[in-house]
């Protein structure tokens, strides 16, 4: 017995067996993931290249500081930490499902896959909130010689340098057209509708502003939003497709497809994809939020 094993072990490439001792589908999943890693790598490195080509870049702690239900409290990194923990935990439930599959334990496979799907959906919900908050979170920005109100989008970046010269702001207010002025005033008077404010004169509107509280910034590098939404969006789409794949695995396991097949190797392949999604998030987290 022992000698046979050694003889086979020394001749992986002599034919008649898989030289990598791995199932075809699983090997191909690995090679797909390598290509996907290069795609994400190219995105993140192009982001790094643009960032290195700029003198100024927004501080992530200032941009990502909101948490649902806490209003304007300054909580840097808190929400993205929650998202990271959700994804790491769903990775753990996935590997537990794979583990249960190794032991042909259908009940546990179904249980842990269900938790993984829930974790994926929770992450997507968090991302939806974060995107909405950034896109609709309006900020007063000095645009040319007047003020404007912009959110974080692929064409607008309100996260430039803070302007503290009162004279500059007063000049810009005089040049600000009516519609923009309505938006600026609305950032301080949420209780009034745009319609009510639009009916007022420019002088009335300027009088309503509390200039000491008005936080005005310059425009930031425009590439910021494109890279953020592009890369987190591409990652979010991977999470979404991972949730679909895991749901299909869940249904198949529940319907005894794998039990009849005699093994749960398909769960391993879905698991590889899901762990890769977690792995990419580790780097997205690093590049966008931490450094």
């Amino acid at each position: 017995m022992a000698t046979t094993a050694v003889a086979i072990k020394n001749n992986w490439w002599s034919g008649g067996k898989s030289p990598f001792n791995v199932e075809y589908g699983k090997l191909m999943m690995w090679y797909f993931l390598i290509s996907d890693a290069f795609t994400f790598g190219a995105f993140l490195i192009s982001y790094g290249t643009i960032r290195f080509s700029q003198n100024y870049w927004p501080n992530p702690n200032a941009v990502y500081n909101a948490f649902p239900g806490t209003g304007h409290a300054n909580l840097p990194l808190a929400f993205v930490s929650l998202m990271t923990f959700i994804l790491i935990f769903s990775s753990v439930t996935m590997v537990l499902a794979v583990h249960a599959g190794h032991h042909n334990n259908k009940k546990d496979v179904v249980k842990w896959l269900a938790w993984t799907v829930i974790g994926g959906l929770a992450f997507l919900a968090c991302q939806a909130w974060e995107w909405t908050h950034l896109i609709t979170g309006y900020h007063v920005v000095l645009t040319g010689n007047h003020l404007d109100v912009v959110g974080t989008t692929v064409t607008g970046n309100p996260w430039g340098v803070h302007i503290d010269r009162a004279a500059t702001i007063a000049d810009a207010l005089k040049n600000t057209p009516h519609e923009a002025l309505v938006n600026v005033v609305h950032t301080q008077h949420h209780d009034m509708s745009h319609h009510q404010l639009a009916a007022m004169s420019d002088d009335q509107l300027r009088g309503m502003l509390n200039l000491a509280e008005l936080h005005v910034t310059e425009k930031g590098p425009v590439a910021f939003g494109g890279f953020f939404f592009g890369i987190t969006g591409f990652h979010g789409f991977h999470v979404f497709s991972g949730v679909i794949i895991n749901s299909i695995m869940l249904i198949m396991a529940q319907k005894d497809v794998f039990a009849k097949r005699g093994h749960y190797l398909m769960i391993e392949k879905a698991g590889l994809y899901w762990h890769f999604v977690d792995l990419v998030w580790v780097f997205v987290f690093l590049c966008f939020y931490l450094i």
Partner: peptide
């Protein structure tokens, strides 16, 4: 280090044979 642990333990790459 995090990437290493995810790939090696969760994705079981550490358990595969060296050539792969």
């Amino acid at each position: 280090a995090k990437a290493f642990y995810i790939v090696s333990i969760f994705m079981h790459l550490g358990d595969e044979i060296r050539n792969m």
